[in-house]
Design a protein around this nucleic acid. Sequence first.
DNA 1: ATAAAAAATGTAAACATTTACAATAGTTGG
DNA 2: CCAACTATTGTAAATGTTTACATTTTTTAT
Lengths: 334, 334
Amino acid sequence: MIDDLKNTKITIYDVASEADVSLATVSRVLNYPEKVKPATRERVLEAINKLGYRPNAIARGLASRKSTTVALIVPDVSRASVAEMINGVIDIARKYDYTVILKVTNSEVEVEDDIWQEVYASQVDGILYLNDELQERNIKQIRESDVPVVLCNVKEEDNLIPSVSIDFEDAFFEATRSFIKKGKKDILLVSTRSAYSVNTLKERGYKRAMEEANLDSKVIRTSGRLVVNYPFFQEYLRDNKPEAAIVVRDSIAVSMINAASDLGVNIPEELEIMSFQNTKYSRMARPTLSSIDNPIYDIGAVSMRLLTKLMNEEPIENVNVVLPHNIIWRNSTK
Amino acid sequence: MIDDLKNTKITIYDVASEADVSLATVSRVLNYPEKVKPATRERVLEAINKLGYRPNAIARGLASRKSTTVALIVPDVSRASVAEMINGVIDIARKYDYTVILKVTNSEVEVEDDIWQEVYASQVDGILYLNDELQERNIKQIRESDVPVVLCNVKEEDNLIPSVSIDFEDAFFEATRSFIKKGKKDILLVSTRSAYSVNTLKERGYKRAMEEANLDSKVIRTSGRLVVNYPFFQEYLRDNKPEAAIVVRDSIAVSMINAASDLGVNIPEELEIMSFQNTKYSRMARPTLSSIDNPIYDIGAVSMRLLTKLMNEEPIENVNVVLPHNIIWRNSTK
DNA sequence: ATAAAAAATGTAAACATTTACAATAGTTGG
DNA sequence: CCAACTATTGTAAATGTTTACATTTTTTAT
């Protein structure tokens, strides 16, 4: 049924007079069908169908003071993990009839401030916020507003804001330990230069495992950008021969694999690499990448579901959801 | 400035009385500042600032019958080319103060019909539609509605609907010819199973070049899914030894490279591969992928710009924009 | 100084719904 | 058959803007 879309200036009044009821009754049929007599309801439904009426979402929003719209704020859509999460969010939003507004910060602070302003002005009912780099000011702001917010794939230490993620620290602790158990001693953590709060957690897990085994931690930092990190790895691996590396993001791990291979370093014989995120990249790389699976689609889906509960003020057991992770072994490890 | 976001129930009336003017004047300051006396304007602006007033976008939309919102309909966010295009769309939308609603069809026809309905009901001012598979019914529907639509990265043959894309046929014609010039004879086109209208154009370009050189066309078809196309290539390449292949999408080309390498087929010595799209994948693959560069970010950006013109009913020279493409030579070709 | 024109501001009617409250119709129990 | 409910429907106010039109103020030209 894709007819009657054209010039659809049909209002609730038209339906009302067609069905010979008042506009309130039409509204009720739409919002509280159980409150109207079945016979009348039928008549109204027929009229709606006949005229191809679709309630104007904007007027509806104004009158009900609800927009059934949520904003999804992300740093960059083209990051594979972000894209996959968006899919999860949108699928669930659709199920609960929410419209999703997409906002991209490009990781620029001023843009981000503007975006928060815009989002509040646009009367969204809730906000999903995905950003590795959670700052004090953001947290403060979120807590002060009365629009519910869910943090996706991030955790803020004090658990003051609802969030959905895995236990990053634990994941990296485990991954590190699995290398230690195999007898590796020279284990590298490859992280990012900017102080993403999530990467701090990952580092903490890594360090805890290393200390527990009385080994020296060694953290190197590079950029997420291919043109920067590939030459960085080329240089690093010329001078250093780590036995194993754990990398905070798939795309960075792919660069490391490629730099190593291009230098003739054998993976996994000479260097084992464990990545984090388990996006498509990890299966496309050669050798295929062992990776800590971060269930990013689920994180998006669960976040959106949690947000619907918050928006409806349903009681919630725990607003800080921790999803399970697990390690996928592929060919970049022995 | 991220103060005063909390409980922001401040309306235009509050600003009006604070500045001691009527609400109409406040509205004018916001929409036609040149129409109000500088002194008054200053006073109103101060009041706005002092109270942290942000016009309610929904009320504004209802009164003005414009939502300054556009819908972006895509098949799947996690496809690298789609994600990159979204970035382009959003950047320009932001510049022109449009809000972007994101809708994902998952390539399911019923979902898509629903989405069109929802989009019209939500009173968007314009629609960006990205879908390889453009169908008759879609075209009809779009033409019948009075909401402007721009097709991104697709072309519909009759040029009845505004669109932004490269010249697919020409791109594939050129790519094929470049192989022919190098003396290749056994040149394969790797396309998809489903009849995407865009792939039809690509095939047409390929065939034209082959016919022109009196060579036999050979088109094979597989799926876009890694789990399907990888084994497909494994089997195909065991039995067939093409000299060169042109592939309609990067991710599929990566699978082909991987299957070939895993079988010990040397690239580019025994098999040269040319891909299409030039996403991140093509630089991450080993060997790096030669690829026809499809300026997908620009396509998103230009599409959004074109849509703003259509929404403002500005005169437009040509509503079917063709962007330049070019071939990036990397290591999967000699 | 004054009439006419232009600029600035105000008043009130849209915009298309939801929803509190009022009114009416229908049902039940005595 | 009537009182007292309950179920159904209608009336009208409210939502927060924009904007056509009316009114007032200022400027310009005589």
